[in-house]
């Protein structure tokens, strides 16, 4: 590891300034669970590391006037898992982040680092895509918001511009009628990265149709993604087993996994079909409200 200087940022404005001054030489440090590994493996080689843990208030979790939950970028996954506001409004998110790796990692890893790192195997993106989450960013040209649906560009690549910092993720609290089902398929050990993750959100209509829905998938493509064709096959219809099975096949056809120790590409495609179908069934099960 090449020696680098470390700047504990006192404010977002200072961090933006340091990034602007040093360009590609500067990297941000959030919780460090991925970044320190990249450092040790020589995959990043910064001259300057800008620490965000010293920025006050960047880990705040709050509900704004519009009823939206705003989770600061430096909130750890463990904090999100146990936060009373999250547990109340978004039990599905609490459940998903509570399944990430181990207690130690959840105590260090942050939601902002998780999203900005853009490792396609991360757990939180699919449920956040299903929730229509939006991220907030600050950069040299000011503040802006980016829908999570257009945030992930490629493996380790996001829509953040050079020098831009992800500051928060915002989610509207869903109405109690909306149903969720999330799956993390782990054929090896419970602390592993997933072979496939699925998040399904169903907005039911009183006449039995599915008024709207989201099917989001992780670990099976260069980016976490929505299975839009599968969503379209179900939207507006009264779901039955044949409809769900057809949609699960469309989800399988939407993914582009790679071979690794968690399965061959073919296996992951098939597991995408299987677990999408099961998640759809669970989200639609009449007696069950699956968080």
């Amino acid at each position: 590891m090449r020696p680098f200087s470390y700047v504990p940022a006192a404010s977002l404005e200072e961090a933006v300034g340091v990034l602007a001054r040093h360009g590609d030489e500067a990297h941000l440090l959030a919780g460090g669970t991925s970044f320190v590994l990249l450092l040790q493996q020589g995959l990043v080689d910064p001259g300057v590391v800008v620490g965000l843990s010293s920025v006050p208030g960047l880990n705040t979790i709050e509900r704004d006037g519009a009823g939206q939950l705003r989770i600061g970028a430096m909130a750890t996954l463990g904090r999100i898992e146990g936060d009373p506001l999250v547990r109340d409004a978004l039990p599905c998110l609490s459940e998903v982040v509570g399944r990430v790796a181990t207690v130690r990692i959840r105590n260090q890893a942050t939601i902002g680092g998780n999203l900005a790192h853009a490792d396609p195997a991360q757990d939180p993106p699919p449920i956040l895509l299903a929730l229509d989450a939006v991220v907030e960013a600050i950069g040299p040209s000011g503040r802006r918001t980016i829908p999570l649906d257009s945030f992930f560009v490629d493996v380790f690549e996001t829509a953040l511009a050079p020098g831009e910092i992800l500051t928060a993720v915002r989610v509207a609290a869903p109405s109690p009628a909306i149903r969720f089902a999330t799956v993390k398929f782990l054929p090896r050990t419970v602390d592993d990265f997933a072979t496939v993750t699925v998040a399904v959100r169903i907005d039911p209509s009183p006449d039995g149709r599915v008024a709207d829905l989201r099917i989001a998938l992780g670990a099976v493509a260069p980016v976490p993604l929505r299975a839009v064709a599968a969503e379209n096959a179900i939207r507006g219809h009264v779901p039955d087993e044949a409809l769900l099975a057809g949609a699960a096949e469309l989800a399988r056809d939407a993914v582009d996994p790679f071979d690794d120790v968690r399965g061959s590409a073919d296996y992951k495609r098939e597991m995408t079909r299987v677990w999408t179908l099961r998640a759809l069934r669970r989200a639609l099960a009449p007696s069950e409200r699956v968080a």
């Binding site: 470390y6 504990p8 440090l29 460090g32 669970t33 320190v36 590994l37 590391v49 620490g51 843990s53 010293s54 463990g78 207690v103 130690r104 990692i105 105590n107 260090q108």
Partner: peptide
């Protein structure tokens, strides 16, 4: 809070 000392820069515990 339980953490991994191998994944922390020492300056992160300032």
């Amino acid at each position: 809070e339980l953490m991994s000392a191998c994944l922390l820069l020492a300056l992160a515990v300032q």
